[in-house]
Design a protein around this nucleic acid. Structure first.
Length: 798
RNA sequence: GCGAGAGUGGCGGAAUAGGUAGACGCGAAGGUCUCAAACACCUUUGGCUUUGCCGUGUGGGUUCGAUUCCCAUCUCUCGCACCA
């Protein structure tokens, strides 16, 4: 085996000493900005997943440098966050120290893989000089009215003692410790991301994201169009306002449902005759865990509100009102009109409570809700209309004219709960003054530095540890000068990662988050690769921050990322997701130690489709190692010379295939192609220096160390970093002959090698004279003969 | 439940504007080298009742020809999850 240890050390030092991967600020050059999701520097260190996640764009970046681009391929650390804080509490070490140690370890490990990052631009979100600008952007958002405070039922994790966003508590479990979350009323900070919902949706049209990534974002934003309709309540002077996507079914409404938390209940509690039952139901509903709510989807529960009756504004029918937990307070108005004939949930509810079911669209059979299209019936002025769109339009016209409702839009996306009761995060730069209310920290006082403390435990009622530090809390109001108190909550982990790609462009600027001219040159990010798990939260959040900055004319384009791709997971050898508890974790450093970084890099890209998850195979890695050995051993066969006639076509084909495959992230087939050409090189007596050089250049992005070494040792060339990517001649990718396939009734019966420029008639003639074919066609009628030029002949017989 | 995607040898996976199924690699078998082993190299390797037949989850369909297109069905993965 070649001495990978020595070679890898040597070239990593060479690249570092010569600043090979530093992006230049020379605006005259064509640029390429390749971005990978910066790691959270956990104590566990680098994972094979990182090698795959970064390995893809690493190959692209190395290729781009050879193509003459000024490449910006940066790296940094997303270092605020709970795991570090919890570790700090457990070991009684300051999170700063934990973070610094982990970062050091990570840097060492990333370097061992030989990634071509521009380390001079390395950033750390917990660095004061970085989070100063995170706070600055937050204040800008505050200034523009995008930050607000509101009382809300929040997802609260009793174990972590922290308020979680909806995104961080999916499935009713805490994203960090996986314990059950509970609902708790609290005043929280929000970012008004819903204001950008339409822009975030529209912007997807301009960018080149993988289709499923776009789809996930669209689902996340969840735009729906419909109508708001106001129902009068008979007993009191009150409107019950609902949102529906199906105003066309208004004549089929037979009851209404409000969420358990709906304010109308408390407002008219004196009027409600069965308030005791309702209070009981509310308690029952609040105790249900998320799991139970999901499991019991079919089993609807609820209580009729006795004493309040709604009136359908389109036909003045009196209809009962229920409360039920299948209606959410957080979406629409927290109240719905129920049309059991045409909605599954309403149907289930109506069946259970014996409520009338009135069909208004023909086509159903009564056994279930009919949700497909049909002709409108039982619907007065809508009768006879045979499509949903027209019916909806006509009804909205009617609602608007009679002032009982109007067209409306709703989003599933909610405003972003933007505070955590934790220590290890960016302090929210806000001051609470008794006289002036909420006062932002003046820009010139930034950064608001996270104070040094010794006790990181959260307070008893889920208060931030910062609340215990008087010297931090007590301050003067910047407006009136009287004593005031600082906000003690910190920002969520998503904050720092929402704009990090901008800081890479100008990492040490202390006047602004980044210089506009530099941004204009480097933005947008040409290619962003990362995990599927981040395509909703992080990708939406960072697009939101970027679009906000765009509206302030602080960044040059409306979208930050031109292209977004995602790699699939690396599974354990057992086909399961790698985890410590399963004991199936592969340590990349052990692989580097045993086979070298080049083998690891190639194997991870060779193991399967880059975008699909794939299990690790301990044996298969040997094959890749063997391949690199064979490339190394080829050096004995090299003689000076140009590309031989014999290898001209295969080499041109290889260049074409490898070049295209890299662009399409089909790294596995690119490496397979390189294996093929190496096998071919072994089949000939001698190979020329030109032939060897092309192999080394094509392989270099995947296995840079060994290629640099051979390029220097065998070919006496200077470094491959800024050498030129091989070009191919389309004409020379074509063979002069091809293997003509002869089929009888679609079945392969013979193959004949013929000249590429053969005519169709000649192909027919050869086919009909083939001995193998004659066996199958003699004595039978030839119905027809199909000729596919330069491919095959199919003889159809009866 | 809804939405999206995927089912191909012993294994990871190639090949779809319809045209030689199984590239490349692993594993396995045999051989060369060696006292022997490892490494390396060479040959073979989808299955079978082998003049041929069957094979891309299953059942149909379109076609001269289907892994690829259409319909139905099963399984798995991912995303969303009572979103009105």
């Amino acid at each position: 085996m070649y001495n990978f240890k020595e070679i890898e050390k040597k070239w990593q030092k060479f690249w570092n000493d010569n600043d090979c991967f530093k992006a230049s600020d020379d605006f005259s050059k064509k640029k390429f900005y390749g971005l990978v999701e910066f790691p959270y520097p956990s104590g566990a260190g680098m994972h094979v997943g990182h090698v795959k996640a970064y390995g893809g764009l690493e190959v692209i970046a190395r290729k781009r440098r050879m193509e003459g681009y000024n490449v910006l391929f940066p790296i940094g650390y997303d270092a605020f966050g709970l795991p570090t804080e919890n570790y700090a509490i457990k070991t009684n070490t300051h999170p700063r120290i934990v973070t610094d140690n982990n970062i050091k370890k990570f840097a060492l490990q990333l370097n061992k893989v030989g990634f071509s990052f521009d380390w001079s631009r390395c950033i750390d979100t917990t660095d004061v000089n970085y989070y100063k600008w995170t706070q600055w952007i937050f204040l800008k958002m505050y200034e523009k009215g995008l930050v607000f405070r509101d009382k809300a039922y929040v997802n609260y994790c009793p174990s972590c003692k922290v308020v979680l966003s909806n995104e961080d508590s999916q499935g009713g479990k805490c994203d960090i410790c996986h314990s059950d979350i509970i609902q708790k009323e609290k005043v929280v900070w929000y970012l008004r991301i819903t204001e950008y919902a339409d822009k975030l949706l529209d912007g997807l049209k301009e960018v080149d994201y993988l289709p499923n990534i776009k789809l996930q974002q669209e689902n996340w934003i969840g735009k729906s169009t419909g109508a708001f309709v106001n129902f009068n309540i008979k007993e009191v002077n009150e409107l019950l306002r609902i949102y529906t996507t199906r105003p066309d079914t208004l004549f089929g409404v037979t009851f209404m449902v409000v969420a358990p938390e709906h304010p109308i209940i408390d407002k008219y509690k004196d009027r409600i005759k069965n308030m005791d039952d309702i209070i009981l139901y509310r308690e029952y509903a609040s105790k249900k865990t998320e799991f139970e709510r999901v499991q019991l989807v079919k089993d609807k529960t609820g209580v009729r509100i006795v004493g309040l009756t709604a009136i359908n504004p389109v036909n003045n029918k009196e209809i009962p009102i229920y409360i039920s937990d299948y209606v959410m307070m957080g979406y629409g108005t927290g109240a719905i009109m129920a049309v059991p004939a045409h909605d599954d949930r309403d149907y289930d509810f109506a069946k259970k409570f014996n409520i009338d079911i009135i069909p208004v669209i023909s086509g159903g059979n009564g056994d279930s809700a009919y949700t497909a299209d049909g002709v409108m019936i039982n619907s007065d002025f809508l009768n006879g209309i045979n499509n949903k769109k027209d019916a909806i339009e006509k009804m909205i016209d009617f609602l608007t004219k009679n002032k009982i409702g109007e067209k409306g839009v709703q989003y599933k996306m909610k405003d972003w709960a933007f505070n955590r009761q934790r220590y290890w995060g960016e302090p929210i730069p806000i001051i609470h003054c008794d006289k002036c209310g909420i006062v932002p920290v003046p820009y010139e006082e930034l950064p608001l530095v996270l104070p040094d403390v010794t006790d990181f435990e959260p307070g008893t009622d889920g208060e931030s540890p910062l609340a215990k530090i008087d010297s931090f809390v007590n301050c003067k109001c910047p407006k009136c000068g009287s004593s005031a108190k600082r906000e003690t909550d910190t920002m969520p982990q998503w904050a720092g990662s929402s704009w990090y790609f901008l800081r890479y462009i100008d990492p040490s600027n202390d006047k602004e988050f980044a210089n506009y001219d530099k941004l204009k040159y480097f933005m947008p990010v040409d290619w962003y690769n990362g995990g599927m798990e981040h395509v909703t939260r992080h990708l939406i959040y960072s697009r939101f921050w970027y679009k906000f900055l765009y509206d302030l004319n602080l960044v040059p384009t409306s979208e930050p990322y031109m292209k977004r791709t995602a790699q699939g997971l690396v599974l354990g050898p057992d086909g399961e997701k790698m985890s410590k508890s399963k004991g199936n974790v592969i340590d990349p450093l052990e692989i580097i130690d045993e086979y070298g970084a080049d083998t690891l890099r190639c194997y991870i890209l060779f193991m399967g489709d880059y975008g699909v998850e794939c299990p690790w195979n301990d044996d298969a890695i040997k094959g890749v190692n063997r391949f690199l050995d064979r490339v190394y051993n080829l050096k004995e066969k090299v003689i000076r010379g140009d590309i031989s006639k014999q290898l001209e076509v295969p080499i041109n084909k290889c260049i074409k295939k490898v070049s295209n495959d890299i662009e399409n992230m089909k790294f596995n087939t690119a490496i397979a192609e390189l294996m093929k050409i190496v096998n071919l090189y072994y089949d000939v007596d001698k190979i020329t220096s030109s032939e060897y050089e092309i192999l080394l250049k094509l392989l270099y992005p995947f296995a840079p160390h060994i290629c640099e070494e051979l390029n220097e040792m065998v070919l006496n060339n200077t470094s491959l970093v800024y050498s030129s990517w091989p070009s191919f001649d389309e004409n020379k990718t074509l063979d002069t002959t091809f293997e003509m396939v002869i089929q009888v009734n679609g079945k392969l019966r013979d193959k004949v090698c013929v000249n590429f420029d053969i005519t169709d008639d000649n192909m027919k003639e050869i086919a009909l004279n083939s001995e193998n074919v004659l066996k199958y066609i003699s004595g039978k009628d030839i119905v027809k003969i199909i000729v596919v030029p330069k491919k095959l002949v199919n003889i159809v017989v009866k």
